[in-house]
C-alpha cells in the first residue's frame, strides 16, 4: 500500500464570483500517474491553479492536503518548495530575467528549504547541462530570457526541463502535449518517463490519448463542469478517443 500524497476533498472554488470547481474529490498516492481529461472550459486548469495557489481564486468549500498538510494555507512558493510543480498550459514570458538567473533563484530556494548550501557556479552549470541533456533542450535557450520569444514547443520543453531541474514530488502537466510536433512529444514524454519513480506522482491534463501512449496512466478521470464525473483505468482514455465527450455530456 503506497502513501497518500495529495488528497482533495469536496473542493469548491470560484473566480470573480463564478463557481468553476463544484466539488472535486481526488486522491493521488505516491508513484501514481493520473490523467485528467475533459472538454474545454470544464475546469482542469482551474484545478491546477487552485492546487498551486494562484492568486485570484477563492476556495469556498473543501480542502487540499499534501502529505497531510493543509495546502490552502500555504503561499504558492511554499507549495512549490513542498514539492508541487506545475507545467503551465501557457508558460509566461518574463523579459529581462534570464533563464540562468531564474533557474539559479529556483534551485537555491529549494536548496535553502532543504537545508543545503548554494551550489557553486561551476556545479550549477554542470547540473543544468546534465538536465538539459535529459530533455534534449537546446542549450541556447538557457541563455535567453525566460520563455521570451520561445516557440510554443520550446516553451513546453522548457517546462519539462524545469521539472527535471526541480525534481518535484508531484508534477501537474497541463496540456504539455498541445502544440508539440511528434518528435517533441516523444522527447517530452521520455523526459517525464525518466523522472518517474515510486516516490514521484504525476497529474497529466490532456485532450489526447496520444500522450498517454507514452506516459501510461494508472488512473484516468473525466472532469466535466467542475466535477469529476468518471474515473477508470487507462482504457477510459481510449474510449474517449473513440467516442468523444457526447455520451458524457448526455449523462450529466
Amino acid at each position: 500500500m503506497s502513501n497518500k500524497m495529495l488528497e482533495i476533498k469536496n473542493l469548491h472554488a470560484e473566480i470573480n464570483g463564478k463557481e468553476i470547481l463544484k466539488g472535486i474529490d481526488l486522491t493521488v498516492n505516491e508513484g501514481e500517474v493520473h490523467a485528467i481529461m475533459g472538454p474545454n472550459g470544464s475546469g482542469k486548469s482551474t484545478l491546477a491553479a487552485v492546487i498551486t495557489g494562484k492568486p485570484g481564486y477563492e476556495v469556498t468549500k473543501g480542502e487540499i492536503l499534501f502529505y497531510g498538510k493543509n495546502l490552502l494555507e500555504m503561499p504558492p512558493e511554499e507549495r512549490a518548495l513542498a514539492g508541487i510543480f506545475l507545467s503551465f498550459q501557457y508558460p509566461v514570458e518574463i523579459p529581462g530575467v534570464t533563464m540562468m538567473n531564474f533557474l539559479k533563484a529556483a534551485v537555491n530556494a529549494k536548496r535553502k528549504y532543504e537545508g543545503k548550501e548554494e551550489m557553486s557556479a561551476a556545479e550549477f552549470l554542470r547540473f543544468i547541462r546534465e538536465k538539459q541533456k535529459l530533455v534534449e533542450m537546446d542549450t541556447n535557450l538557457t541563455n535567453r530570457a525566460v520563455n521570451e520569444g520561445f516557440s510554443g514547443g520550446e516553451k513546453k520543453k522548457n517546462e519539462i526541463f524545469q521539472m527535471a531541474v526541480l525534481e518535484p514530488k508531484l508534477a501537474i502537466l497541463d496540456e504539455t502535449d498541445s502544440g508539440l510536433d511528434i518528435d517533441a512529444l516523444r522527447v517530452v514524454a521520455n523526459g517525464v518517463n525518466k523522472l518517474r519513480s515510486p516516490e514521484r506522482s504525476f497529474i497529466v491534463i490532456t485532450h489526447y490519448q496520444r500522450l498517454l501512449d507514452y506516459i501510461v496512466p494508472d488512473i484516468v478521470h473525466i472532469l466535466y463542469k467542475g466535477k469529476i464525473v468518471k474515473t477508470a483505468g487507462k482504457e477510459l482514455a481510449l474510449e474517449l478517443e473513440e467516442k468523444g465527450y457526447g455520451w458524457i455530456k448526455e449523462q450529466f
Binding site: 512558493e77 529581462g96 538567473n101 531564474f102 530556494a109
Partner: peptide, 28 residues
C-alpha cells in the same frame, strides 16, 4: 501578477521574485 506567480510556482519567494522583476524592468 502572472510573471510573479510563475516565479513563485518555482519556489522563488515573493520578495525575490518582485526584486528580480523590478531589476529586469530597470535593466532595459
Amino acid at each position: 501578477e502572472d510573471e510573479l506567480f510563475y516565479m513563485r510556482q518555482r519556489g522563488i519567494s515573493q520578495k525575490t521574485a518582485r526584486l528580480m522583476l523590478l531589476n529586469a524592468f530597470a535593466y532595459d
